[in-house]
Design a protein around this nucleic acid. Structure first.
Lengths: 138, 138
DNA sequence: TCATAATAGTTGCATATCTAACCACTGGAG
DNA sequence: CTCCAGTGGTTAGATATGCAACTATTATGA
């Protein structure tokens, strides 16, 4: 019905991809947003919370809630910056570091599978375009 | 950070597009999901609720909530099917029919603007690919 | 120096979404 | 005809997300 609508088709695709990554991250007891947030923290330990929000392209308030969840699971720690007492530095715990490789591998496996399903060229091209369009909308 | 990830880039783009359509539908006091649901009802009055959910690619439970909202705003009506008392037929009210053209025009205007911004070819190609990928994931 | 503006993070409130469990009804198989 | 499986819709519970308003802290400028 909304065949030519970028909003409709992008949001519908996002929901389907969410289901795919839900399965991939289930073994770690992490939802997709939690999994990606943790991966970001693991990739760049010590980021400020606001920088983390920027990396993930989410609102600061959403980062607050996401980190609350990861903290409750014992996967990340907030440390008040001594330089500026408003800021929080986010670091992964040992438990998080332990699953780092498996978590990244799980995501890579899904990516590889989908890439094969659609053709690597098409797949990469689509992702690039999504990124380019998002950049122009900023 | 997740430059090559279809999940990350698609969901991030979806959030940005949501913001764009939020602005476009604000004059009607409708959120993007509400606006699209209403447009679907206006395009095909008398659809069963489950058919509507299929059209919009959302879960039945989500359709229930969305329709609750539109009904509360006096924009749609549920009618129990006489043939099968479980089913509900969804029809727009007069108030909804009144804004139909303006609502569709508002969405079309955004689409046109974005299409111009990215180039009509690229834009249409991206939407087609999103649809094709979603279809393969089903 | 001190008042004001800006910034980091949190909280409150609203919305959308899903899965699972449930209810009411329908339709077949015995 | 009756019971049971399947189906349409709702409800319960969980998560993610955003904006706006708030608190605490820092920076600026008169």
């Amino acid at each position: 019905m909304f065949d030519r609508c970028i909003y409709f088709n992008t949001t519908a695709l996002a929901r389907q991809l969410d289901r795919v990554w839900t399965v991939a991250f289930a073994p770690f007891d992490l939802t997709p947003p939690q999994g990606f947030m943790l991966r970001a923290v693991l990739a760049r330990p010590g980021l400020l919370q606001s920088e983390l929000a920027d990396e993930l392209k989410i609102a600061r308030a959403t980062a607050t809630r996401g980190l609350d969840g990861l903290e409750a699971k014992g996967l990340v720690v907030r440390t008040k910056s001594s330089r500026d007492k408003r800021e929080s530095l986010i670091t992964p715990t040992a438990a998080a570091v332990e699953i780092k490789d498996a978590l990244n591998a799980a995501s890579a496996a899904v990516t590889k599978r989908l890439s094969g399903l659609f053709g690597a060229e098409v797949f990469a091209g689509f992702v690039d375009q999504a990124k380019a369009i998002a950049a122009k909308l900023e």
